[in-house]
């Protein structure tokens, strides 16, 4: 299951991880090796087998819709790289 350099670039873009151009070859070789390994799964016929997402197949429990905690915005923003007036700062998006 070889994966092309262009596919690596596309995946890296989706994952928002920049990869240096000179590393692309190494990454594509590693990913190809892993994907080939996992394709062992093809050996078993899974027609009509329902996928299993949660080991116990229980539903998430729900709680009542009521306020349990006060607003902790300032506490939660205390670990942010850059905050001003309770807003997260990022590079300008719209010129």
């Amino acid at each position: 299951m070889a994966i092309s350099d262009d596919e690596v670039r596309a995946i890296a873009r989706l994952a928002r991880i920049s990869i240096e151009e000179q590393d692309i070859i190494v990454v594509s070789a590693e990913l190809s090796q892993i994907l080939e390994f996992v394709r062992q799964m093809d050996a078993v016929d899974t027609t009509n087998v329902e996928p299993l997402a949660h080991p116990l197949e229980t539903d998430a429990h729900h709680r009542e819709d009521k306020v349990l905690e006060s607003n902790l915005r300032d506490t939660y923003q205390s670990c942010a790289p850059q905050v001003q007036d309770a807003l997260y700062l990022v590079p300008k998006v719209i010129e």
């Binding site: 994966i3 596919e7 690596v8 995946i11 890296a12 989706l14 994952a15 928002r16 991880i17 920049s18 990869i19 990454v27 590693e30 990913l31 892993i34 994907l35």
Partner: peptide
Amino acid sequence: RSRREGFGPETQRRILVGTY
């Protein structure tokens, strides 16, 4: 760039495999 610098090689590898 934050993600490339912040994550090590194995974590990046798994994110890429998972994304694929």
